[in-house]
């Protein structure tokens, strides 16, 4: 799935912050974790997002020796990142229910109209 809109980008950013909060990750690891949560984004699309999050100082990248040998860039959540994640959580809780409700109700009305036409 290509990332189609700003909205989806913002949500994906929030999810990446939440994953990094639990545990520092490197690029490939992050893409695997997103897939484990059934978030099917194209694997490469995390790299522009990681760069942006670094530029906004929400995460911090650090080259480290991995247990298996090669150098890897691990990402850590910064203090600003923590704040931004809390804000995302808050906004998500605030918008999740009403949007679900509206979408469900909208579909309900549609059914009614179709039924009436019949």
């Amino acid at each position: 799935m290509a990332i189609r809109s700003q909205l989806l980008k913002g949500i994906l950013e929030g999810c990446i912050l939440a994953i990094i909060e639990k545990q520092p990750v490197y690029g490939y690891e992050l893409s695997v974790k997103l897939q484990d949560f059934d978030l099917e984004v194209s694997e490469g699309s995390i790299y522009p997002i990681l760069l942006r999050l670094q530029k906004e100082k929400l995460i911090r990248g650090q080259m480290e020796k991995s247990p298996s040998g090669p150098n890897r860039k691990y990402y850590y959540l910064t203090e600003d990142g923590q704040k931004s994640l809390e804000e995302f959580r808050h906004n998500w809780e605030w918008i999740k229910k009403p949007v679900d409700h509206i979408l469900r109700k909208g579909r309900g009305n549609e059914h009614k109209t179709i039924n009436r036409r019949k």
Partner: peptide, 21 residues
Amino acid sequence: EMLDHLLIAQEEGKTAEDIFG
């Protein structure tokens, strides 16, 4: 980072196009 990613994905039989579009 992207090269490391591609190298692992290659082992799993994926191509660069699968990863980066």
